[in-house]
């Protein structure tokens, strides 16, 4: 790789992006207290919250204007994802947004009705994580609430539609996962084939990785905040535990990882918006690093509250469980490493 490339390295948010961040930060802190997150367990979906997200324009902001949307880019969507993750909101924001955008990108007349339903939030859509292999069921993120799932089959990108979603399966992150038996789904719409299908599918996966990375950043930051407050009030042997390096230093490592993971997620979003053919490994890097950050950060944040951090009653438990529960939905961090390595290898050829 080129270590001396003359590029800008500017993370300053535009004013309009700042506004998005603040607006959604306010929205989630008003509308999505942790009590609501708890109440939505184990399914991880709250219809009322979803309705309010739709009213807020969340389901249309990222659609192109031609599909009735506001044409927001990945940078804005990633900022929303950060706030969404901070609140660990029980709503299929990421799945629905990336799948809707993929459907819109296909620009297929057969999809007009479904796209309209996706835009007004009445029809939740989702993306399968791996190509369909006959005879094998697949765990589909948001598959317990989505009636339409986009999946790769052979050389085609196919939308599988059902009248009733498959039943929810309990999972560590309390997300609406379901085993989809794609063989049994007869209602199929081929939305793209060949290179175009691959392009749309790859893009949707990249977007899911970047938005998940951003969500994990917000999630970890909230968990860190809970523990920082705890250590400022808890004493041991006559001193606040926050003054102990054995407590303070691990907290600084979490903060450090968050700051880097946030910048990488935003940078990856920027590249998808403005320079999609360059740095194809960035979405994977963003997800891997955010996933490491969240797994380590929520574990340490829970641990630094001692036994109290290990209790179900403590909100930090919900964050700990979702760090893995959300992170591994978007991709296997280890499998992604090889593809990232391939880019390093290609860069010196």
């Amino acid at each position: 790789m080129d270590l001396v490339e003359l590029r800008r390295n500017d993370y300053t948010l535009e004013e309009v992006s700042q506004e998005v961040l603040v607006a959604f930060g306010d929205f989630f802190s008003d509308q999505c207290p942790t009590s609501l997150v708890r109440a939505s367990q184990p399914l991880g979906f709250d219809q009322g919250l979803w309705d309010r997200l739709v009213e807020m324009g969340t389901t249309t902001m990222g659609l192109p204007e031609s599909a009735g949307g506001d044409g927001a880019g990945m940078v804005e969507l990633a900022l929303v994802a950060e706030e969404f993750g901070r609140a660990i909101a029980p709503a299929p924001y990421i799945e629905h947004i990336v799948t809707s955008r993929a459907l819109a990108a296909a620009d297929n007349p057969a999809l007009v009705e479904i796209l309209a339903g996706a835009a007004d939030g009445s029809r939740i859509v989702a993306l399968a994580s791996a190509p369909i292999t006959p005879g094998a069921k697949q765990l589909v993120p948001a598959g317990a609430i989505a009636k339409d799932v986009l999946a790769f089959v052979g050389e085609d990108l196919v939308l599988f539609s059902v009248d009733t979603p498959f039943p929810h399966v309990a999972n560590q992150g309390s997300t609406p996962l379901a085993w989809w038996d794609f063989d049994s789904v007869s209602q199929r719409t081929v939305i793209a084939t060949g290179d175009e299908a691959l392009r749309i599918y790859t893009r949707a996966h990249d977007e899911r990785m970047v938005l998940t990375a951003a969500a994990l950043v917000g999630m970890t930051e909230y968990a860190l905040g809970l523990t920082v407050e705890f250590t400022k009030t808890r004493e041991t042997m006559g001193v606040l535990i926050a003054t102990l390096q054995g407590v303070a230093f691990p907290l600084t490592d979490i903060a450090t990882n968050i700051a880097g993971a946030r910048n990488i997620a935003r940078k990856a979003a920027w590249y998808l918006d403005f320079s999609p053919d360059e740095r194809p490994e960035l979405p994977a890097i963003a997800l891997v690093y955010a996933s490491q950050t969240a797994t380590h950060g929520t574990q340490q944040a829970a641990h630094l509250q001692g036994g109290l951090g290990f209790t179900v009653e403590n909100d930090i438990s919900m964050y700990f469980l979702r760090a893995k529960g959300w992170g591994s939905i978007a991709g296997d961090p280890n499998a992604l490493l090889a593809t990232i390595g391939d880019q390093v290898l290609a860069s010196v050829k």
Binding site: I264, L282, I285, V288, L337, A338, T339, G341, V344, L345
Partner: peptide
């Protein structure tokens, strides 16, 4: 491939 990928994540 994986080791270079891991190094790249950390480098970034």
């Amino acid at each position: 491939r994986e080791s270079l990928g891991a190094a790249m994540v950390d480098y970034e």
